[in-house]
Amino acid sequence: MTPETFKSEILPMKHKLFRFAGRLLQNIPEAEDVVQEVFIRLWDRRDALKQYRSVEAFAMTIAKNLCLDRLKSKRNRQDEFTEKHEQADSLTPYHHVEMKDSFQKVNQIIGILPEQQRMIIQLRDVEGYEYEEIEEITGMNQNAIRVNLSRARKQVRELMKKQYNYEFTKN
């Protein structure tokens, strides 16, 4: 594969990869790093890319692995208690005030979902992937995907309701 083909066919995936990595890592510079790392790996295999049925699914899988590795090493560095504490804390009244518009509201709510749910919400509800593609990227079976997706969707709705009730009582 020539640099031109790589540029015109592979690099345009940067937006989708960035959104995916951003959703998982909840950190923009880190997500950018992951996207670059994905492309370096694809570039190293540029002549073998034709063998893949879907280069995009392959790229997304690499991104997923890189993100999960980063999250794991971050978890190892951090005391697990503090992280859970932080997560539970992120919807305290103080944070509620910080939420400016509805976009950021939903964004934060999805941000506190467990990794797998975040990943699946991103792939299905944001990017609109078919279940077969999500299976390929996540390595999960369709049933587990649907269960996680269902939990995530209900959780988002519940947290949004809580948020509204809070705003209602505040005013």
């Binding site: 937006h15 570039w43 976009f103 964004n107 509800d125 709705r157 509204y164």
Partner: peptide, 30 residues
């Protein structure tokens, strides 16, 4: 609530990679 949730998904899919000069930088780095 659903309006906000689905509205979020509609907007989120349009989010772009922050660095507009990424392609050139990438090849420079390589």
């Amino acid at each position: 609530i659903y309006r906000e949730i689905f509205g979020f998904y509609d907007t989120a899919v349009q989010e772009e990679f922050p660095d507009p000069d990424f392609d050139n930088r990438f090849f420079d780095k390589l």
